[in-house]
Amino acid sequence: MNMITDTQTAEHFKKLRPAMAASRAAFGALLLRDLTVLRKSLGIFIARTLVQPFLLVFVFLYVFPQIGQGIGGGGGANGESSFATVLVAGVVALSIMFQGIQAVALPLANEFGYTKEIEDRVLAPLPVSMVAIGKVAAGAIQGLIAALIVFPIAAVIHAKGVHPNLTVNWVILLTLIPLTCVMTSALGLFLGTRIAPRNIGLMFGFIVLPITFLGGTYYPWTALAAVKIGGFSWLQALVCINPLIYVTEGFRAALTTAPHMQLYVIYPVLVGLCALFLWVGIKGFYNRVLS
Protein backbone atom coordinates (compact mmCIF):
# COMPACT_ATOMS: atom_id res chain seq x y z
CA MET A 1 0.00 0.00 0.00
CA ASN A 2 3.02 2.27 -0.09
CA MET A 3 1.74 3.57 -3.36
CA ILE A 4 -0.62 5.69 -1.32
CA THR A 5 1.92 7.20 0.99
CA ASP A 6 5.21 5.95 2.32
CA THR A 7 4.03 5.97 5.86
CA GLN A 8 1.34 3.38 5.25
CA THR A 9 4.08 0.77 5.56
CA ALA A 10 4.45 1.45 9.28
CA GLU A 11 3.74 -1.84 10.96
CA HIS A 12 1.25 -0.59 13.50
CA PHE A 13 -1.11 0.74 10.86
CA LYS A 14 -4.14 -1.32 10.21
CA LYS A 15 -3.94 -3.53 7.15
CA LEU A 16 -6.11 -2.02 4.47
CA ARG A 17 -8.56 -4.11 2.54
CA PRO A 18 -8.67 -3.49 -1.20
CA ALA A 19 -10.99 -0.57 -1.94
CA MET A 20 -13.24 -2.56 -4.27
CA ALA A 21 -13.74 -5.46 -1.89
CA ALA A 22 -14.40 -3.15 1.04
CA SER A 23 -16.91 -1.13 -0.99
CA ARG A 24 -18.75 -4.19 -2.20
CA ALA A 25 -19.06 -5.61 1.30
CA ALA A 26 -20.21 -2.28 2.70
CA PHE A 27 -22.76 -1.82 -0.09
CA GLY A 28 -24.27 -5.24 0.60
CA ALA A 29 -24.39 -4.46 4.31
CA LEU A 30 -26.14 -1.14 3.69
CA LEU A 31 -28.81 -2.94 1.65
CA LEU A 32 -29.16 -5.52 4.36
CA ARG A 33 -29.62 -2.77 6.93
CA ASP A 34 -32.37 -1.15 4.88
CA LEU A 35 -34.13 -4.46 4.34
CA THR A 36 -33.93 -5.22 8.06
CA VAL A 37 -35.60 -1.91 8.78
CA LEU A 38 -38.22 -2.75 6.15
CA ARG A 39 -38.82 -6.17 7.67
CA LYS A 40 -39.35 -4.62 11.09
CA SER A 41 -42.18 -2.50 9.79
CA LEU A 42 -43.48 -4.91 7.19
CA GLY A 43 -47.05 -4.66 8.44
CA ILE A 44 -47.06 -0.91 8.08
CA PHE A 45 -45.31 -1.18 4.74
CA ILE A 46 -47.98 -3.49 3.37
CA ALA A 47 -50.82 -1.44 4.79
CA ARG A 48 -49.28 1.74 3.39
CA THR A 49 -48.87 0.10 0.02
CA LEU A 50 -52.44 -1.17 -0.03
CA VAL A 51 -54.45 1.75 1.25
CA GLN A 52 -54.30 3.94 -1.80
CA PRO A 53 -54.84 1.35 -4.53
CA PHE A 54 -57.50 -0.31 -2.46
CA LEU A 55 -59.43 2.93 -2.09
CA LEU A 56 -59.05 3.81 -5.74
CA VAL A 57 -60.21 0.46 -6.93
CA PHE A 58 -62.94 0.23 -4.33
CA VAL A 59 -64.48 3.61 -5.14
CA PHE A 60 -64.08 3.61 -8.88
CA LEU A 61 -64.60 0.00 -9.76
CA TYR A 62 -66.91 -1.22 -7.02
CA VAL A 63 -68.91 1.65 -5.60
CA PHE A 64 -69.38 3.81 -8.69
CA PRO A 65 -70.81 1.08 -10.90
CA GLN A 66 -73.25 0.10 -8.16
CA ILE A 67 -74.55 3.58 -7.46
CA GLY A 68 -74.96 4.13 -11.14
CA GLN A 69 -72.37 6.89 -11.25
CA GLY A 70 -70.60 5.22 -14.10
CA ILE A 71 -67.42 6.58 -15.47
CA GLY A 72 -65.85 5.70 -18.72
CA GLY A 73 -66.64 7.04 -22.12
CA GLY A 74 -69.21 4.49 -23.29
CA GLY A 75 -71.26 4.33 -20.09
CA GLY A 76 -72.77 1.14 -18.74
CA ALA A 77 -70.86 -2.03 -17.97
CA ASN A 78 -68.78 -1.71 -21.10
CA GLY A 79 -67.68 1.78 -20.25
CA GLU A 80 -66.89 0.74 -16.72
CA SER A 81 -64.88 -2.20 -17.91
CA SER A 82 -62.84 0.01 -20.17
CA PHE A 83 -62.28 2.44 -17.30
CA ALA A 84 -61.20 -0.50 -15.16
CA THR A 85 -58.72 -1.38 -17.84
CA VAL A 86 -57.33 2.15 -17.75
CA LEU A 87 -57.25 2.23 -13.98
CA VAL A 88 -55.40 -1.04 -13.36
CA ALA A 89 -52.33 0.21 -15.16
CA GLY A 90 -52.63 3.56 -13.41
CA VAL A 91 -52.93 2.04 -9.97
CA VAL A 92 -49.88 -0.16 -10.36
CA ALA A 93 -47.85 2.76 -11.67
CA LEU A 94 -49.00 5.05 -8.91
CA SER A 95 -48.19 2.53 -6.19
CA ILE A 96 -44.63 2.12 -7.39
CA MET A 97 -44.26 5.87 -7.62
CA PHE A 98 -45.48 6.41 -4.08
CA GLN A 99 -43.25 3.67 -2.80
CA GLY A 100 -40.20 5.29 -4.36
CA ILE A 101 -40.94 8.59 -2.72
CA GLN A 102 -42.00 7.16 0.62
CA ALA A 103 -39.23 4.59 0.89
CA VAL A 104 -36.41 6.94 -0.04
CA ALA A 105 -37.37 10.59 0.32
CA LEU A 106 -39.07 10.41 3.72
CA PRO A 107 -36.43 8.48 5.67
CA LEU A 108 -33.62 10.39 3.99
CA ALA A 109 -35.08 13.77 4.82
CA ASN A 110 -35.15 12.71 8.46
CA GLU A 111 -31.74 11.09 8.55
CA PHE A 112 -30.10 14.13 7.03
CA GLY A 113 -31.87 16.40 9.42
CA TYR A 114 -31.18 16.99 13.05
CA THR A 115 -30.25 13.41 13.94
CA LYS A 116 -27.56 13.00 11.27
CA GLU A 117 -28.23 9.28 11.51
CA ILE A 118 -26.91 8.80 8.03
CA GLU A 119 -23.39 9.65 9.26
CA ASP A 120 -22.45 6.16 10.34
CA ARG A 121 -23.35 4.86 6.90
CA VAL A 122 -21.51 7.68 5.18
CA LEU A 123 -18.46 6.69 7.24
CA ALA A 124 -18.65 3.09 6.02
CA PRO A 125 -15.64 2.29 3.85
CA LEU A 126 -17.17 2.98 0.45
CA PRO A 127 -17.54 6.04 -1.77
CA VAL A 128 -20.30 8.39 -0.66
CA SER A 129 -22.03 8.04 -4.04
CA MET A 130 -22.40 4.31 -3.36
CA VAL A 131 -24.25 5.07 -0.13
CA ALA A 132 -26.73 7.11 -2.17
CA ILE A 133 -27.01 4.37 -4.78
CA GLY A 134 -27.60 1.88 -1.98
CA LYS A 135 -30.57 3.98 -0.86
CA VAL A 136 -31.95 3.90 -4.39
CA ALA A 137 -31.45 0.15 -4.64
CA ALA A 138 -33.26 -0.45 -1.35
CA GLY A 139 -36.07 1.86 -2.49
CA ALA A 140 -36.33 0.05 -5.81
CA ILE A 141 -36.68 -3.28 -4.01
CA GLN A 142 -39.55 -1.83 -1.99
CA GLY A 143 -41.16 -0.55 -5.17
CA LEU A 144 -40.88 -4.03 -6.61
CA ILE A 145 -42.56 -5.57 -3.59
CA ALA A 146 -45.28 -2.92 -3.79
CA ALA A 147 -45.92 -3.79 -7.43
CA LEU A 148 -46.27 -7.45 -6.56
CA ILE A 149 -48.73 -6.68 -3.78
CA VAL A 150 -50.82 -4.20 -5.73
CA PHE A 151 -51.22 -5.93 -9.03
CA PRO A 152 -53.56 -8.69 -7.80
CA ILE A 153 -55.87 -6.23 -6.06
CA ALA A 154 -56.11 -4.00 -9.05
CA ALA A 155 -56.87 -6.93 -11.27
CA VAL A 156 -59.35 -8.63 -8.97
CA ILE A 157 -61.48 -6.16 -7.03
CA HIS A 158 -64.39 -4.80 -8.99
CA ALA A 159 -68.19 -4.94 -9.14
CA LYS A 160 -70.09 -7.62 -10.98
CA GLY A 161 -70.01 -7.17 -14.70
CA VAL A 162 -66.99 -4.86 -14.61
CA HIS A 163 -63.96 -6.57 -16.05
CA PRO A 164 -60.63 -4.98 -16.68
CA ASN A 165 -59.51 -6.28 -19.99
CA LEU A 166 -55.94 -7.39 -19.33
CA THR A 167 -53.50 -8.83 -21.81
CA VAL A 168 -50.08 -9.07 -20.28
CA ASN A 169 -47.08 -8.40 -22.46
CA TRP A 170 -44.41 -10.02 -20.33
CA VAL A 171 -41.44 -8.56 -22.12
CA ILE A 172 -42.66 -5.06 -21.49
CA LEU A 173 -43.82 -5.82 -17.96
CA LEU A 174 -40.56 -7.41 -16.84
CA THR A 175 -38.40 -4.65 -18.24
CA LEU A 176 -40.70 -1.85 -17.21
CA ILE A 177 -41.07 -2.78 -13.55
CA PRO A 178 -37.36 -2.64 -12.65
CA LEU A 179 -36.85 0.48 -14.74
CA THR A 180 -39.76 2.20 -13.03
CA CYS A 181 -38.67 1.11 -9.57
CA VAL A 182 -35.22 2.57 -10.10
CA MET A 183 -36.56 5.76 -11.67
CA THR A 184 -39.05 6.51 -8.91
CA SER A 185 -36.62 5.65 -6.18
CA ALA A 186 -34.01 7.90 -7.77
CA LEU A 187 -36.69 10.60 -7.83
CA GLY A 188 -37.14 9.88 -4.12
CA LEU A 189 -33.39 10.39 -3.61
CA PHE A 190 -33.56 13.68 -5.47
CA LEU A 191 -36.55 14.93 -3.47
CA GLY A 192 -35.16 13.64 -0.17
CA THR A 193 -31.89 15.47 -0.62
CA ARG A 194 -33.48 18.72 -1.74
CA ILE A 195 -36.37 19.09 0.66
CA ALA A 196 -35.95 20.02 4.32
CA PRO A 197 -37.74 17.71 6.77
CA ARG A 198 -40.09 20.50 7.83
CA ASN A 199 -41.23 20.93 4.23
CA ILE A 200 -42.18 17.31 3.66
CA GLY A 201 -45.86 18.22 4.00
CA LEU A 202 -45.47 20.78 1.23
CA MET A 203 -43.81 18.16 -0.94
CA PHE A 204 -46.94 16.06 -0.81
CA GLY A 205 -49.19 18.98 -1.59
CA PHE A 206 -47.17 20.58 -4.34
CA ILE A 207 -45.29 17.70 -5.91
CA VAL A 208 -46.90 14.37 -5.15
CA LEU A 209 -50.51 15.39 -5.66
CA PRO A 210 -50.02 17.08 -9.04
CA ILE A 211 -47.90 14.15 -10.16
CA THR A 212 -50.72 11.82 -9.18
CA PHE A 213 -53.62 13.70 -10.75
CA LEU A 214 -51.80 14.68 -13.89
CA GLY A 215 -50.00 11.38 -14.28
CA GLY A 216 -52.47 9.46 -16.37
CA THR A 217 -53.72 7.30 -13.54
CA TYR A 218 -57.38 7.87 -14.34
CA TYR A 219 -57.15 8.42 -18.07
CA PRO A 220 -54.92 7.32 -20.91
CA TRP A 221 -52.54 9.94 -22.23
CA THR A 222 -53.77 9.39 -25.77
CA ALA A 223 -57.26 10.52 -24.70
CA LEU A 224 -55.91 13.90 -23.58
CA ALA A 225 -55.60 14.86 -27.24
CA ALA A 226 -59.23 15.93 -26.92
CA VAL A 227 -58.42 18.70 -24.45
CA LYS A 228 -57.66 21.62 -26.73
CA ILE A 229 -57.29 25.33 -26.89
CA GLY A 230 -57.40 26.61 -30.41
CA GLY A 231 -56.51 23.27 -31.89
CA PHE A 232 -53.55 22.72 -29.56
CA SER A 233 -53.75 19.72 -27.23
CA TRP A 234 -52.17 21.69 -24.41
CA LEU A 235 -52.81 19.25 -21.58
CA GLN A 236 -51.38 16.34 -23.48
CA ALA A 237 -48.23 18.37 -24.03
CA LEU A 238 -48.10 19.71 -20.49
CA VAL A 239 -48.26 16.36 -18.71
CA CYS A 240 -45.17 15.26 -20.60
CA ILE A 241 -43.13 16.97 -17.89
CA ASN A 242 -44.65 14.53 -15.41
CA PRO A 243 -42.48 11.43 -14.94
CA LEU A 244 -45.52 9.39 -13.89
CA ILE A 245 -47.14 9.67 -17.31
CA TYR A 246 -44.43 7.51 -18.86
CA VAL A 247 -44.87 4.93 -16.14
CA THR A 248 -48.65 4.71 -16.42
CA GLU A 249 -48.48 4.61 -20.21
CA GLY A 250 -45.80 1.96 -19.96
CA PHE A 251 -47.98 -0.20 -17.76
CA ARG A 252 -50.89 0.40 -20.11
CA ALA A 253 -48.73 -1.02 -22.86
CA ALA A 254 -47.65 -3.90 -20.66
CA LEU A 255 -51.08 -4.86 -19.33
CA THR A 256 -53.67 -3.91 -21.93
CA THR A 257 -54.30 -3.64 -25.62
CA ALA A 258 -55.66 -0.14 -25.18
CA PRO A 259 -54.01 2.74 -27.04
CA HIS A 260 -50.92 4.11 -25.32
CA MET A 261 -47.94 6.35 -25.81
CA GLN A 262 -45.35 4.92 -28.17
CA LEU A 263 -42.87 2.55 -26.54
CA TYR A 264 -40.02 4.20 -28.40
CA VAL A 265 -40.86 7.31 -26.42
CA ILE A 266 -41.51 5.63 -23.07
CA TYR A 267 -38.30 3.63 -22.76
CA PRO A 268 -35.76 6.31 -23.67
CA VAL A 269 -37.52 8.86 -21.48
CA LEU A 270 -37.61 6.49 -18.50
CA VAL A 271 -33.93 5.65 -18.94
CA GLY A 272 -33.15 9.35 -19.27
CA LEU A 273 -35.12 10.18 -16.13
CA CYS A 274 -33.29 7.43 -14.23
CA ALA A 275 -29.97 8.93 -15.21
CA LEU A 276 -31.10 12.49 -14.49
CA PHE A 277 -32.57 11.77 -11.06
CA LEU A 278 -29.62 9.60 -10.07
CA TRP A 279 -27.22 12.31 -11.10
CA VAL A 280 -28.93 15.19 -9.31
CA GLY A 281 -29.83 12.88 -6.41
CA ILE A 282 -26.23 11.82 -5.85
CA LYS A 283 -25.10 15.42 -6.16
CA GLY A 284 -27.70 16.44 -3.61
CA PHE A 285 -26.61 13.60 -1.35
CA TYR A 286 -23.02 14.83 -1.45
CA ASN A 287 -24.15 18.32 -0.56
CA ARG A 288 -26.17 17.10 2.37
CA VAL A 289 -23.64 14.78 3.97
CA LEU A 290 -20.38 16.56 3.22
CA SER A 291 -19.62 20.17 3.96
Binding site: I4, F13, K14, L16, R17, A19, A22, S23, L123, A124, P125, L126, P127, V128
Partner: peptide, 10 residues
Amino acid sequence: AHPSLVKQVI
Protein backbone atom coordinates in the same frame (compact mmCIF):
# COMPACT_ATOMS: atom_id res chain seq x y z
CA ALA B 1 -7.19 11.71 -2.16
CA HIS B 2 -8.49 8.47 -0.64
CA PRO B 3 -11.48 9.15 1.60
CA SER B 4 -12.94 5.65 1.27
CA LEU B 5 -9.66 4.10 2.39
CA VAL B 6 -9.30 6.48 5.31
CA LYS B 7 -12.73 5.38 6.49
CA GLN B 8 -11.33 1.89 6.99
CA VAL B 9 -8.86 3.07 9.63
CA ILE B 10 -10.85 5.62 11.63
